[in-house]
Design a protein around this nucleic acid. Structure first.
Lengths: 155, 155
DNA sequence: CTGCCTGCAAACTCTTTGCACGAAT
DNA sequence: ATTCGTGCAAAGAGTTTGCAGGCAG
């Protein structure tokens, strides 16, 4: 999904909800779509402030749900305390994450069967599926070679 | 895995680490293995205190990692702020969770293919797989019928 | 007497919220 | 005017940690 289309989608969502397109929201949007990797709320705040230094932490946290609800951003929870976000691709929710447990780097992989599996399993239980997440934890290449991740920042 | 075997495993783990088998740790162990459903740290504290009222929250939080590291307990993170735990079955990590987004009830389902998938994907990236989690979010039966979960405690 | 264990309370991290001011319609 | 949006600071939830005393080997 291109930035242009995402911006349209976002603005359409805001309009539909009777919400306003403010400078702060746009700054946060632009900051999010300038990222190439996964990012946290805090990182997003920094980037957004570089665009518009009036952006506050509260507004970032209030805007993130708007962006995920409008499906222009995907939330990735790897169970590490903080949540990660990234621009949603065109692939919907059919993405699995492979996480290096040493440096927390997140690789993403298309996994279309997940949707099929989610439906199958849900229906078997009599449930109505909404979404599914598949996450693999692993040691990265560098770890295998040197016993340590180059990116590693953890204790 | 029976309680008896789990207790052996736990004590062996403690011994191997040069840690002591204290009354508090045993109370927490017993409380954990008396549970039929998933439980939180806070719930475990309550149950453990019913067995030995000297158990503190700190000790519960210090003991939980010992029990997961010795593989007698499984940690389940459904991205809801708090973590859930349950006695580990014999199935290893080959279990998927189906979570009702309305009442947070967690269903578990055997999913042996996950392990295969985790390996395949990791190796393709040059990583060494450790574990994998598959989680499906869904609306439960009651929700479909009444628009509301019977267990629902959320706002 | 050395070192692991403990409870308590304070600290910490990430996120949410109440409030009063400000801006858009 | 009315409604929505904002920053700030405080609150909140869940978890971790420093400390001084206790208990075990």
């Amino acid at each position: 999904m291109s930035v242009v289309i995402a911006r349209e989608k976002f603005q359409a969502y805001l309009a539909q909800k009777g919400l306003r397109v403010t400078n702060q929201r746009l700054a946060i949007f632009d900051a999010a779509f300038a990222q190439k990797e996964h990012f946290t709320a805090e990182q997003l705040l920094d980037r957004a402030r570089a665009i518009d230094d009036s952006v506050s932490r509260a507004t970032v946290y209030r805007t993130l749900p708007l962006m995920t609800e409008s499906h222009i951003l995907r939330e990735v929870d790897i169970g590490s305390g903080e949540k990660f976000y990234m621009p949603a691709g065109t692939g919907g929710t059919q993405v699995a994450q492979v996480v290096c447990v040493d440096c927390d780097k997140i690789y993403e992989i298309s996994a279309p069967f997940m949707e099929w599996y989610g439906s199958t399993v849900s229906l078997k239980l009599g449930l109505k599926p909404i979404s599914q997440r598949l996450q693999v934890s692993a040691h990265c290449i560098a770890f295998r070679q040197t016993g340590r991740c180059p990116n590693r920042t953890k204790k």
